[in-house]
Simulated assay, not measured.
Amino acid sequence: MSTIAFIGLGRMGVPMAAHLVAAGHTVRGVEINPAAADAARAHGIEVVDSVAAALAGADACLTSLPKPEHVSAVYGGDDGIFAHAEASTVLMDTSTVDVETSRWCHSEAEARGLTFVDAPISGGTAGAEAGTLTFMLGGAPDDVARAAEIVDPMAGNVIACGEAGAGIAAKLVNNMMLFIGVMAMSEGSQLAEQLGLDAKTFWDVARVSSGDSWPLRTWYPVPGVLEKSAANNNFDPTFSVDLARKDCGLAVQAGDTTGVNLPAARLALAQLDELIDEGLGGKDCTLVAKLASPDGTLRGYDPALDRTLEGTRA
């Protein structure tokens, strides 16, 4: 069994690392949020105070961080991963970042004689908890093969996407399609409501018909249809608006760089920005369904219960 460093033990990182522990690996983690650190300890993860302590003698290191700037800082800082990793340690970033940041990680690792694989994931918190995430790996074939063995306990699918940066490129395109799909599901759910259709009955129809999609099967934004839908919990986040906006923005940025026209992605981005402008960046991204509602209200969402609006009301 291996010793694995895990940097970033949040909503995704804790269940992912827990699967590694269950598979018999020793996991040493770093997390600055005290509640998340406590949750990690409860799953058998050894929480340490520094990246250096996590990396000491580690066979592998995984990072799960919110934004590109966090990845750059954790890898490139004076006390970061590049400063303390050993040549034998395979480094894997599961975060969603821009292609340029991922390629920077590859080039900086290579310059230091280190091994790096971009290893973004798809499947959300439900996939992290179930151990069914899809890993999209980019890097040299031998390095990708090593990474695939490490991530296997957390994965339902492990796909070698190509050379350096191919994994993150695949992730950005995939998530762009996801947010366009969320928009379609949201509009469909509200039209079905206004036409008087029973929500579960319509979901049963769409699930086995041409309207089917991953967000429809996983995140349907009407309460009482899917147990883990955010609609059952006042749209508290499983995948926040802020993070969705970050990912969708990176995809639109890639479109600008490559010259690809992305009108649907730009509309999805505009809707996420509208929610952020309303102070709802901390809510679930499926709250975009309220933008399709005739009067802006949404079954399953009560602003009076929304702690994120307390400062606005004060």
Rank of each mutant, 00 (worst) to 15 (best):
L137M: 03
V51F: 11
W104V: 13
N175L: 12
I276G: 08
G296Q: 07
W214E: 04
D98L: 05
L20D: 04
E278Q: 15
S293Y: 05
V151T: 03
D93M: 04
M185I: 13
V90W: 01
L9D: 06
T134Q: 09
L20S: 05
P221L: 12
L287P: 02
V158M: 03
D152C: 13
D212I: 09
A206E: 02
L20E: 04
G211P: 03
A289D: 01
G57R: 07
V222Y: 01
T218M: 13
N261K: 13
V252P: 05
E187R: 10
L262F: 14
R28C: 10
T63S: 15
G57E: 07
L216E: 04
H43P: 06
A140L: 15
A83V: 02
A126F: 10
E278T: 06
A206P: 02
G57V: 12
A52L: 14
S107E: 09
A23M: 05
G57N: 08
V144S: 00
R146T: 06
P221F: 10
L91F: 08
L65I: 02
S72C: 07
A166F: 00
T63C: 09
E46A: 15
L243F: 15
G139Y: 01
G123A: 11
K283R: 15
A60E: 05
V99K: 04
E163R: 15
C248R: 00
T201F: 12
D302K: 14
T308Y: 14
G196K: 07
A17D: 03
P66S: 05
A42E: 08
G279V: 11
L243T: 11
A164C: 10
R112M: 11
A56F: 06
E86N: 09
A230F: 06
M12K: 02
D98N: 14
M136W: 01
L243I: 15
P303N: 09
S210N: 11
D236K: 14
G156V: 07
W219E: 06
V51T: 12
A140H: 12
L178Y: 03
P221K: 14
S293K: 06
V158E: 01
D79V: 09
A244R: 03
A109K: 03
N175G: 11
F82A: 06
A270G: 13
G24M: 07
S186I: 04
G255F: 14
V222S: 05
G282P: 01
D247A: 09
I168Q: 11
A251L: 07
D38I: 10
M185G: 06
V182G: 02
H19L: 01
R245Y: 14
F135K: 02
C61Y: 07
E110A: 15
K67H: 13
A83N: 08
R207H: 13
V260Y: 10
M1R: 10
V241N: 02
I159D: 00
S213I: 08
C248F: 00
R28D: 04
R11Y: 15
G224I: 03
T96S: 14
D212V: 08
